[in-house]
C-alpha cells in the first residue's frame, strides 16, 4: 500500500531565547493511504509539532517529510501554501471559523483558491453541507451555531477541496461527550467510506479508539500502540 505520509530522520528543534529544545528526535513514520491514525501523548511530547510538519504548517530542522507524494520540507512558503490548499484539510480544536462569514461562506473559503466557477462552488458547498448534515444552517453565522455544528462546518470546509489527507488537532477537545462522539463518527465515516487518510492528535483514549492505528509520541519519539485496522469504534 502506498504511503500518504513518510517522515525520515526528522528532527525539529525550537530556539527559546538562549535555549534550544529538540522536540522531535530523528523520527521515522509511514502512514499508508486511507489510514486513520491517532497520535497520542502527554502535553509537550511533540504530537502537535509532528502534525504541523505533516500538514505543511512547519518545517523540520532536518530530515525528509514526504506527504501526498511531495517532498514538502523543500517547498517555498508560496509553494507550501498551494500544496496545503490542494492536499490537506485541517480541523482544529476551536473550529477556527471566520466569524463574519456564514456557514456556507466558511465552507467555500478553500474553493476560492481554485478555478471553479461560482455555480460549481455553490454545488460543492451544498454537497458538503449535506454530508455534514447542516443544509438547513447554511446561512447561519458561527455565533448562531452550537460547538458541534461549528465543528461540522469546519469538517465540511476541510473536505470541500477534496484533500488527500485530513489533519485533525484535538477535534473534539472543546465538545461535550455526545457531540464529540458525533464528530468522531463523522470523521470515521469519511475515512471508511471515502478513503480519506486521517491523522488526528488527541489526548482522549475514547477518541483515539475511533482510529485504525494509534501511535504514542513520547519525548520526541514514536511508540506503536496497537494495529487497530480491524477495530470498530466503541
Amino acid at each position: 500500500m502506498s504511503s500518504v505520509a513518510s517522515l525520515h530522520n526528522v528532527i525539529k528543534r525550537y530556539v527559546r531565547g538562549k535555549q534550544t529544545i529538540e522536540v522531535l528526535h530523528q523520527l521515522d513514520l509511514e502512514v499508508p493511504s486511507g489510514q486513520f491514525l491517532a497520535l497520542m501523548g502527554p502535553s509537550g511530547s511533540g504530537k502537535t509539532t509532528l502534525l504541523n510538519l505533516i500538514g505543511g504548517l512547519d518545517r523540520p530542522t532536518a530530515g525528509e517529510v514526504i506527504v501526498a507524494g511531495e517532498r514538502i520540507d523543500q517547498l517555498s512558503s508560496g509553494q507550501l501554501a498551494k500544496w496545503r490548499a490542494r492536499h490537506v484539510g485541517f480541523v482544529f480544536q476551536f473550529y477556527n471559523l471566520m466569524p463574519m462569514l456564514s456557514a456556507e461562506r466558511n465552507i467555500e473559503l478553500p474553493l476560492l483558491l481554485t478555478s471553479l466557477s461560482s455555480a460549481q462552488r455553490k454545488r460543492n458547498v451544498a454537497a458538503a453541507l449535506e454530508l455534514v448534515g447542516l443544509t438547513t444552517h447554511a446561512k447561519h453565522k458561527p455565533s448562531e451555531l452550537s460547538g458541534g455544528q461549528q465543528q461540522r462546518v469546519a469538517i465540511a470546509r476541510a473536505l470541500i477541496a477534496d484533500p488527500t489527507l485530513l489533519v485533525c488537532d484535538e477535534p473534539t477537545g472543546d465538545l461535550d461527550r455526545a457531540s464529540a462522539s458525533d464528530i468522531l463518527g463523522l470523521i470515521q465515516t469519511l475515512n471508511r467510506q471515502q478513503g480519506k487518510a486521517v491523522i488526528m492528535v488527541t489526548h482522549d483514549q475514547k477518541a483515539a479508539d475511533y482510529a485504525s492505528r494509534i501511535l504514542h509520541v513520547d519525548k520526541g519519539q514514536l511508540v506503536e500502540a496497537a494495529d487497530r485496522s480491524a477495530a470498530t469504534a466503541a
Partner: peptide
C-alpha cells in the same frame, strides 16, 4: 487560519 487553508502570504 486562512494561511492554513492555503492562502499565500501575498
Amino acid at each position: 487560519v486562512m494561511k492554513t487553508l492555503g492562502f499565500t502570504d501575498g
